[in-house]
Amino acid sequence: MIELVLVAAGLTLIAIGVFYDFVGAVGLLRLPNFFTRLHAATAGAIGGAVVPMIGASLVALGAEYLGPPRFFLAGAAFASGLLLMILAQAGSHAIARAAYLSGEAPREPILYDALEKGGGE
């Protein structure tokens, strides 16, 4: 019974993950400039990758037919999700900052820019 609950929860999380994958992809295409696309990418990374990884680790815990290595799967998937939480934010921040400082990406449309008004370095 507990297996079924785990698997159901896991599959739900994976399905949510797929949905946010799609959200990220469409957002990346539809949003107007680099800085706004960053937000879609975040949705793709957290909702689209961390959530399904945790879901997969739940599914693996429940899926007895995979044999003993399923603990390896569950652990590694969970660890990947955990690392991704740290990595995704650092990566987005780094690329955003680099894009802003180098002026590589256009900032428009933008309503207000605090950095330009005396912030930054």
């Binding site: 800085f35 934010q89 955003a96 900052r97």
Partner: peptide
């Protein structure tokens, strides 16, 4: 940064 909608661009 991890919540979609806000991204830290620069830190001072």
């Amino acid at each position: 940064t991890n919540t979609p909608g806000t991204v830290v661009v620069q830190v001072d």
